[in-house]
């Protein structure tokens, strides 16, 4: 299983594209933040696919976005 590419995504429907990206992102997100990986992956999947492909190739970008998602979730929970 090689890296996911824009060409591979382009042959799939928009829903399938997010599914393919999510399947790749989830284990990486879980390795950074085990307890909220499903929620965080769902949040990241709302970003542009080009940005998601970049995150799959760049652990630093992914980590910084996961950290941001954790911050957003904590702020949201504090509001409730």
């Amino acid at each position: 299983q090689g890296p996911l590419t824009a060409t591979m995504l382009s042959s799939a429907s928009p829903e399938e594209q997010k599914e393919m990206l999510g399947e790749r992102l989830f284990p990486l997100v879980r390795s950074i933040q085990p307890t909220k990986a499903s929620k965080i992956t769902g949040m990241l999947l709302e970003l542009d696919n080009s940005e998601l492909l970049h995150m799959l190739e760049s652990p630093e970008s992914l980590r910084s976005m996961v950290d941001e998602a954790i911050g957003v979730l904590q702020a949201h929970q504090a509001e409730e």
């Binding site: 999510g22 992102l25 499903s38 992956t41 949040m43 999947l45 970003l47 998602a69 911050g71």
Partner: peptide
């Protein structure tokens, strides 16, 4: 800067990985 991330996003549950409880 306000984050573009949405805390109400739907959770992603992968098919190929067991879900931790």
């Amino acid at each position: 800067r306000k984050s573009t991330l949405n805390p109400n996003a739907k959770e992603f549950n992968p098919r190929s990985y067991a879900q931790p409880k």
